[in-house]
């Protein structure tokens, strides 16, 4: 690759994106250098998952540029995009394991599809990846037999099968007990450092994020409103940051969805803020 090693791996400039008429990202700028674990936090529906879609080329930005390793993801044709994706791994929210394949076959899937390795070599590689997430003993199980945390770890092993340069994590801690979440968090950190990857985590989990991330960005109204380190989060008395870190229901991010004045609506009897049906 002609892309220089010291240049940022991910560069988003002035990205606008949405679904139908709803705009979710509006002028987002983001740069991630190699080797970093970046956590993207923000309320639900703030376009965090769309951001992963843009990086993986599953979503195409309305305007602005999305560059991974210097390549404009939105402008790639089918085969170049697949070539790029082979160098990316993604952990989906609930693992997205293939339910009709065993744990072993799930992890063998990327090798069988993308390489011509003989089955004996694949077997060794699969066992190595399973060992890395501590689940070598579960190779023969089916995904339905695993707990949520174990499924997430198997999915992680599958995502790192081809030793990607970039790992995308979509809500990796959601729905896990604190111990399992802690295990996943530590794995993310360890894998990132051991394999020289770059990681982007979209998450709500403040505790785990503060523990493992190098850097945290807060997204609100389609753009990045804070760009800070975990240390800064702990020390900050910024109202916005405190609301996220402490999980306060109301603050700069309002608890209420925009609505007409409560008393007025109760008295007026109208739904949806207008009087059109009266």
């Amino acid at each position: 690759m002609s892309h220089p090693v010291d240049a940022p791996l991910i560069e988003l400039k002035n990205v606008r994106f949405g679904y139908g008429e709803r705009v979710v990202l509006d002028g987002l700028d983001l740069t991630v250098p190699r080797g970093q674990i970046l956590a993207v936090m923000g309320g639900s529906g703030n376009g965090k998952t769309s951001l992963l879609g843009l990086l993986g080329g599953r979503n195409i930005a309305w305007s602005g540029s999305v560059r991974v390793e210097g390549q404009d993801v939105g402008g790639l044709d089918g085969s170049s995009l697949y070539a790029l994706r082979r160098r990316m791994g993604m952990l989906f929210q609930f693992g997205a394991l293939f339910t009709d394949l065993s744990v072993f076959d799930n992890i063998a899937f990327p090798y069988r599809e993308q390489t011509n390795l003989p089955e004996t070599v694949i077997r060794d590689l699969v066992l190595m990846k399973l060992e890395a997430v501590g689940l070598r003993g579960a190779a023969a199980s089916m995904p339905s037999q695993l707990s949520g945390g174990m499924a997430r770890r198997v999915a992680l092993a599958r995502a790192i099968a081809l030793d990607p340069m970039l790992m995308l994590y979509d809500e990796p801690f959601t729905g896990l007990d604190p111990i399992s979440a802690g295990i996943i968090g530590r794995l993310i950190r360890r894998l990132n450092d051991a394999f020289g990857m770059t990681s982007l985590i979209v998450t709500h989990d403040v505790n785990e994020t503060l523990r493992i991330a190098d850097r945290i960005v807060l997204v609100s109204d389609g753009r990045i409103v804070r760009d800070i380190t975990p240390q800064e989060v702990r020390a900050s008395d910024d109202l916005f940051i405190r609301q996220f870190a402490d999980g306060l229901p109301d603050g700069p991010v309002p608890f209420h969805y925009p609505a007409p004045a409560y008393a007025q609506q109760l008295l007026g009897g109208a739904v949806g803020g207008g009087g059109a049906h009266g």
Binding site: R86, M90, F92, T99, P110, E113, Q114
Partner: peptide, 22 residues
């Protein structure tokens, strides 16, 4: 439909395996 709902198709696509062919 379930493969789609559980993001298995998306996961396949992200693994550079075309879900339509596969």
């Amino acid at each position: 439909g379930l493969m789609r709902a559980t993001e298995q198709l998306a996961a396949m696509d992200m693994m550079a395996v075309d879900p339509i062919s596969r």
